[in-house]
Design a protein around this nucleic acid. Structure first.
Lengths: 123, 123
DNA sequence: ATTTGACTTCGAGTTAACTGTAAGCTATAT
DNA sequence: ATATAGCTTACAGTTAACTCGAAGTCAAAT
């Protein structure tokens, strides 16, 4: 079903507040092509929409799981290329999912090691 | 029980091979004070022992779980200060353990999000 | 005796991802 | 009318953690 959207136009400062990202970083992401759909008002100011907010969540997800901004950009670009790149995008996400799984295992191993070390320090 | 030690003197190149860390990085770590017990032979060349190999494992563990080299250095320094710093070291490790646990949870959340996204892409 | 290889120091260069500064524009408030 | 706030661009600076180059020392091999 379709649902009504809440008003969906934001300035860079509003987005900075909502997503707790600095305006510097938002402009940097835009400059790097991570937000290719940001339009401008008649004064040249950026207009962010819900689409950008969703992208920022996705960027955060990929970035915080170790993907470089450069690689994230290829994902963004592919997305705007449409269905032609569907397999590439699925592959990229599957690869990232695998990487996260491996990382979780690695972190678990390190956690065990540190807990072991704490034990020995307590003797 | 006490066990015999295998011979325990290594050059920087040998350590680089054993631990697959570049000699550049090893010297950098030494310069930064992360390996305070590295002695020198009569020619001024570094002599690494099993103690350093163990430290390199510990450094890797802390570093790969997100600790800065600067903070790792305080842990190393504290260790060589002896029992006076025991509580500080235990605290540092407990804090790191907590951080790792939180991170694992976060990564799990991101993994779910990505798997969800893969699903929607496949429709 | 000289070449080779592995080591040394010092200092400069690299990279990613910001982070900040300066100069300027525009809409709103006083 | 002017001050303020929030935006703009261009570009320079910062940070952590390396990474490398140059010039030099020393021991072992040819």
């Amino acid at each position: 079903m379709k649902t009504m959207q809440t008003p969906t136009n934001f300035t860079i400062g509003q987005v900075a507040q909502i997503k707790t990202i600095s305006t510097y970083t938002l402009r940097y992401y835009d400059d790097q092509g991570l937000l290719p759909k940001v339009f401008r008002d008649k004064n040249g100011n950026r207009i962010f929409t819900n689409e950008e907010l969703k992208w920022l969540d996705m960027i955060k997800c990929l970035k915080n799981t170790g993907m470089s901004l450069e690689k994230i950009k290829t994902f963004v670009d592919d997305t705007y290329q449409g269905s032609r790149t569907l397999q590439a995008r699925i592959l990229l996400l599957n690869t990232q999912a695998k990487k996260i799984k491996d990382n979780i295992e690695e972190q678990q191993t390190y956690l065990n090691k540190i807990n072991q070390k704490i034990k020995t320090l307590k003797n």
